[in-house]
């Protein structure tokens, strides 16, 4: 088996040149999916017989909550790649994902709190799911702070990699919090292994939005990575060549 596809990722130049195209495709695809999915969920999905229209927050809340966790897992994979293969781009990805992941975590917490008011009668309870998500937010915040505090990018990358790997313990806690403890938060709405608890007219737009937000996250992370690569490689001849040509 050829490992060329993997080794290519060791070249920031290779990545930068291609990521621009990938970003364009992701950007348009995400925009189309999110417009379709959101309008479908907001206007065409049936009203919930218990929660009324407030349940329509699900079409934003569930995708961003999924992503907040998936992005942390992606950072952990990057940390492993950084430690095992010393790939610089993995560190760039960690840096980019931390900011985007924090944004998605905040959006997930705020949308959940707003949904909680008409459903539970309160914006916030210190229950296991909400608290573990808040901790995820602090982990992202800690990573951004740690990187800002260390000047040498290589040292900062290593320190952040360790913190990311330690924080992975929080992911199963978030996932199983609704089963291990008595919580106000409902169990998972969609599972890969089971039939959805909602009718198709409700979960189909949700699926479109989940896909849309995933691709939007890829678009944002790629954009951020490209900017970081140019910043870090500013003394490399290929960057000077590229800027000189422009």
């Amino acid at each position: 088996m050829s490992w060329r596809w993997f080794h290519q990722w060791g070249s920031p130049r290779w990545f930068y040149e291609r990521a621009g195209r990938w970003q364009l495709v992701c950007g348009w695809l995400a925009l189309i999916l999110l417009v379709v999915g959101s309008l479908w969920g907001l206007g065409f999905a049936p009203v919930d017989y218990q929660q009324g229209n407030s349940y329509r927050i699900i079409y934003l809340h569930v995708p961003v909550a999924f992503l907040a966790q998936a992005m942390y897992a992606a950072m952990a994979v990057c940390a492993v790649v950084l430690f095992v293969w010393k790939m610089k781009l993995a560190d760039v990805a960690m840096q980019a994902i931390a900011v985007t992941g924090l944004a998605f975590t905040v959006l997930s917490l705020v949308s959940g709190a707003v949904w909680g008011k008409p459903t539970w009668g309160t914006y916030w309870v210190w229950d296991a799911r909400l608290t573990s998500m808040l901790i995820l937010g602090f982990l992202y915040l800690g990573l951004i702070g740690l990187r800002a505090a260390i000047q040498d990018p290589d040292q900062a990358g290593k320190a952040c990699g360790i913190l990311v790997l330690v924080g992975v313990v929080n992911l199963p806690i978030i996932k199983y919090s609704v089963e291990w403890w008595n919580t106000l938060h409902q169990p998972a709405s969609l599972k890969l292994t089971e039939k959805p608890t909602m009718p198709a007219s409700m979960w189909m737009p949700l699926l479109v939005n989940i896909l849309g937000y995933y691709i939007a996250a890829a678009y944002l992370v790629l954009g951020s990575m490209r900017a970081i690569v140019i910043g870090r490689e500013r003394r490399a001849s290929w960057v000077k060549e590229l800027v000189g040509r422009a």
């Binding site: 229209n53 927050i57 934003l60 707003v114 008011k117």
Partner: peptide, 18 residues
Amino acid sequence: MAPHGAYVWPVYILGLLI
């Protein structure tokens, strides 16, 4: 979006802003 427009729309606007 009666009676929950005040909850639903701000969430989507915040999503768009972010």
